[in-house]
């Protein structure tokens, strides 16, 4: 008898757990239904099942945000559900490696940023080769970066900054969000462009780095507009320049590095889509067409504008343009990183 009542208690408890999980299910699937599962008419052949977009960085980060923005319109165009999956680790190389080893059938797609071109220089035994292990689908967006400093940092302009850091090279500190992060790469390029070697202070991500910059613990850094524009417009940090050939709409008063006299400092966090090498050409073409359609979507344009960026022009959302960009960037960063003597493993 005792055993029976015990098992009944167990059953009740499992029922409670079930109710809680059902509540979770309702919240989960209800929302997904409203937002994600866009299934339209298929065009025959590919795609016949859900497509997974692998983001090799954490959810909620800039790359993840961009991926989720384009996933919906792409899903609508392709007529299949797109599932975004985060596989972070080791500067994006874990997720990239997973996709490189995946079936080349077009159902596993990688979204990667500038890190694709820097990983071979930073990591040994990568397990994949950017140009050979992947088939490029197209570029997505190029996020501009900004050079910012603590607000009481003496230099008033980018030119002043270069003169100042040269004169005080042993005292100035340059923050970044960790080895291989966009802010680290931009900082390396700044040092090369300015011809100076500075003391770098790495942080675990942008948040803590920016916190110490606002708090005046470190002198300056270079980071994506996504992260800095709020602090810039509030006057919490001093901004010197934006690192793209054109000014950014959300920060109209900020000169470009070329205008400010340091044209060598040109860098953007470019994003692209990849599939494993060996994926059939017509599948790649379908993905690329869907990407183009998504980038032309006004909603995507608006959302990206809020991030301080914009979709690439249609001719860049192609495998050819993407391949050219990757080749050029691989060469650039191999040199910059070798010159700086950085090695992640």
């Amino acid at each position: 008898m005792r055993t029976t009542s015990r098992y009944r208690a167990a059953a009740r408890t499992i029922a409670v757990i079930g109710v809680v999980s059902l509540a979770a299910a309702c919240a989960g699937s209800g929302g997904t239904g409203g937002e994600g599962a866009t299934t339209g008419g298929a065009t025959g052949g590919y795609p016949e099942q859900n497509i997974t977009f692998v983001v090799p960085f954490s959810a909620g980060g800039p790359t993840d945000t961009v991926t989720r923005m384009i996933a919906d319109p792409m899903a609508a165009k392709l007529g299949a559900k797109i599932v975004v999956q985060n596989a972070e680790g080791a500067g994006g190389t874990v997720g990239a490696g997973e996709v490189a080893r995946a079936e080349p059938d077009g159902y596993t797609v990688l979204m990667h940023h500038i890190g694709m071109s820097t990983a071979p220089a930073l990591y040994k035994d990568l397990g994949y080769k950017p140009l050979e292990s992947f088939q490029m689908v197209g570029l997505v967006t190029e996020v501009p970066m900004t050079v910012v400093a603590r607000k009481d940092f003496p230099p008033a302009s980018l030119k002043d900054l270069v003169t100042y850091v040269k004169a005080n090279a042993s005292k100035v500190t340059l923050a970044n969000a960790g080895i291989g992060a966009a802010s680290h790469l931009c900082g390396l390029l700044f040092q090369t462009a300015a011809g100076v070697k500075l003391q770098e202070v790495p942080y675990e991500g942008t948040g803590p780095a920016l916190t110490d910059l606002v708090g005046g613990q470190v002198d300056f850094m270079c980071d994506q507009t996504t992260n800095t524009s709020g602090q810039i417009s509030a006057g919490e940090v001093k901004a010197y320049a934006v690192t793209t050939p054109e000014r950014v709409k959300s920060l109209p008063d900020l000169p470009t590095t070329a205008e400010a006299g340091l044209p060598q400092l040109e860098v953007s966090v470019w994003h692209g889509l990849y599939v494993p090498a060996g994926t059939p050409q017509d599948v790649v073409q379908k993905l690329s067409d869907a990407l183009k359609a998504a980038l032309a979507d006004q909603k995507v344009v608006d959302q990206m504008a809020k991030l301080g960026t914009a979709p690439v022009p249609a001719e860049d959302a192609t495998p050819q343009a993407h391949k050219a960009k990757l080749e050029e960037q691989l060469a650039t960063w191999a040199k910059v990183i070798a010159d700086a003597g950085v090695k992640a493993s």
Binding site: G18, L22, A25
Partner: peptide, 17 residues
């Protein structure tokens, strides 16, 4: 029972992929 509960909670409820 546990397999059923686990499936219900993690796969159905929390949408584990």
């Amino acid at each position: 029972g546990l397999t059923a509960a686990g499936t219900l909670i993690f796969v159905v409820g929390l949408q584990l992929r």
